[in-house]
């Protein structure tokens, strides 16, 4: 079974739990005392990841670190539909990669602000917040036009991708870092849609939302 070196409050660990829950992949969570123990910075953990950060997965001996790389691996290996990481379409896989890189930006701004507020990390909080708002403005406009094209997700296909999974946690927990989402109504609607994905998993600070409209044959 996949082992996930995990911390309950980490957005990057949550991304892995979420995709594995959606893909129905069983995994074992190995808790790492991230705070206050700083176990990931200790000598023992550096044998697992010399960079000293989580998440890391161990899939039957295959070790992989870095949240967005793990998403690529898990979707490539465990999604038989090939829709979550759409390598069969050059356009879609390009877009997915583009938005995964965008997620690096949201992690380094919105989630960094959250680490500063919640766990006392020394970041320039004003610049984190400004950076997050700059990205959110772009994302909100993008998602608004996606809706105009009757599309629900960040990439242009009909199906969500790991790019949605990569961006969602940074966005949905932004208020913990003092980044309000009141000015981003299209982002707020998109977060509802992510929460309605079958297999959606909550975490502290991320709550389920009301169910989607039932399909006509279910009424």
């Amino acid at each position: 079974m996949i082992k996930l070196f995990d911390y309950i409050l980490s957005v990057n660990c949550y991304k892995q739990r979420l995709i594995m829950s959606i893909l129905d992949v069983p995994f074992e969570s190995i808790p790492v005392d991230f705070y206050p123990g700083l176990e990931h910075k200790g000598e023992e953990f550096k044998k697992i990841n010399p960079l000293g950060h989580i998440p890391v997965i161990d899939d039957d001996g295959f070790m992989l670190r870095d949240a967005h790389a793990i998403l690529v691996y898990l979707a490539s290996k465990y999604d038989p539909t090939g829709l979550w990481y759409p390598v069969n379409s050059p356009e879609l896989v390009g877009e997915t990669t583009q938005w995964m890189l965008f997620a690096e930006g949201t992690t380094n701004t919105a989630s960094a602000a959250r680490l500063h507020v919640n766990l006392g990390y020394e970041f320039d909080i004003d610049s984190c917040r400004e950076g997050a708002h700059r990205l959110f403005r772009v994302l909100d406009e993008h998602l608004w036009f996606r809706e105009q094209e009757n599309r629900d997700w960040v990439c242009s296909g009909e199906h969500p991708t790991i790019a949605d999974i990569a961006i969602f946690p940074d966005v949905i927990l932004s208020e913990e870092g003092g980044i309000a989402r009141i000015d981003y109504p299209a982002i707020r609607r998109w977060t509802d849609r992510v929460k309605r994905l079958p297999g959606f998993l909550p975490m502290p600070g991320i709550f389920p939302t009301a169910d989607a409209r039932p399909l006509s044959h279910e009424v």
Binding site: E147, I182, P185, R189, T209, A210, A212
Partner: peptide, 14 residues
């Protein structure tokens, strides 16, 4: 708000 800000079972923050 816009009418389209209020889809099914959503809560808009204004």
């Amino acid at each position: 708000a816009s009418a389209e800000d209020l889809p099914y079972r959503h809560i808009f923050q204004g």
